[in-house]
């Protein structure tokens, strides 16, 4: 008989390295046509980091995302980045990019302030313009200011910055310290159907609620969560590297190393929790790795809810679930026998 169950799991996850330095650096230059160029060492692998970095620079400079040219991952030209790892790019590289853009913007404000007859601190950016706060009609086009900064003031609007998350080493005696600058949190709920005659598990639905600070690009956040959950489903039920006695992998291919297909993946509902981290770029933290952390735990809790067995090693294959069911029945049989 097929039995349904639901399970829940929560997690927290740190952004960046544990205590040790993991800086990112960035260069932003504002061009005379009102576009900007960002140099970053980070690597795009499809997660959308470069889009998010362009959005951050665009927001800081008041221009469109499409007007930010991103040059990335070239040791000839781009500054150092610790890497697209540790779920750190939006937070660490994003902070570096924002700070670099802010420095370029400062130069533009110095140039624009006397032209607009105010102090630099009375200026803001928006809509491709540098304008007076409260008097947006008094403004200059950002490209014209960039041109003047270079050609008249002799101070081209270029900013460079680096960012290293603020941590403090753990005290060896008390264990106290600050190993990470920030953390993200999530809860996932899985609904499964377990066949109590075969041990087969089908995941019917997963609801995932994730805090990543400000979601700078909600569509990309959803993509990360959905992808992470597919890895979590594989981790929970299918994926396993098998070795023979000599240590040779016996399933080095996709025929025998089973991973989720479109038929194995349930409907995933993603809920992005509204939050703001004042230490992140525009309140953002990160979202990469944390997405697959609670999935397997939620699924195994759901299996327990459905058929009352705890599987304690992954993946929870049909064989393992079936063996646990059989052991449970034998146990119950014994207890019944003892009672009689």
């Amino acid at each position: 008989m097929k039995r349904r169950g639901r399970g829940i799991a929560c997690m927290w996850y740190p952004i960046g390295f544990t205590v040790s330095a993991n800086p990112s650096a960035a260069v932003v230059k504002v061009n005379e046509d009102g576009t900007a160029t960002l140099l970053t060492g980070t690597v795009e692998t499809g997660q959308g980091s470069l889009t998010i970095l362009a959005q951050i620079v665009a927001e800081e400079l008041g221009i469109a995302t499409d007007d930010v040219h991103v040059v990335s991952a070239d040791t000839d030209t781009t500054p150092m980045d610790t890497g697209a790892i540790a779920s750190r790019t939006t937070y660490v590289t994003g902070n570096a990019a924002r700070l670099a853009a802010e420095k370029a913007k400062k130069i533009l404000f110095e140039v624009a302030a006397p032209l607009l007859g105010v102090k630099p601190e009375h200026l803001e950016v928006g809509d491709h313009k540098i304008r007076i706060k409260g008097f947006p009609q008094r403004s200059l086009h950002i490209g014209d200011v960039a041109e003047r900064a270079r050609g008249v003031n002799g101070d081209p609007p270029i900013g460079s910055a680096s960012f290293n998350p603020a941590t403090a080493a753990l005290d060896a005696e008390t264990g106290q310290g600050k190993p990470f600058a920030t953390y993200v949190y999530a809860t996932q709920i899985a609904e499964v159907e377990v066949d109590d005659e075969t041990g087969e598990v089908e995941v019917l639905r997963i609801a995932a609620s994730h805090d990543c600070g400000t979601p700078i690009n909600p569509m990309l956040v959803e993509g990360q969560v959905e992808g992470g959950i597919s890895m979590g489903v594989g981790f929970a039920l299918e994926e396993e590297i098998l070795f023979d006695a000599t240590g040779r992998q016996i399933n080095p291919n996709l025929t025998n190393y089973i991973m989720p297909t479109s038929l194995d993946m349930p409907k995933v509902e993603v809920d992005i929790v509204d939050s703001y981290d004042p230490t992140g770029p525009f309140g953002a933290k990160g979202v990469g790795e944390p997405t697959c952390v609670p999935t397997a735990a939620a699924i195994l809790n759901a299996i327990h809810d459905a058929v009352g067995v705890r599987v304690t090693s992954l993946p929870a294959t049909a064989e393992k679930v079936y063996a646990a069911l059989k052991a449970k029945r034998a146990q119950e049989g014994k207890r019944l026998g003892a009672g009689a």
Partner: peptide
């Protein structure tokens, strides 16, 4: 899509 493996996306989008 069952014969097209994707490691990244979970297929939803």
């Amino acid at each position: 899509l069952a014969g097209n493996l994707c490691r990244c996306t979970g297929y939803s989008k």
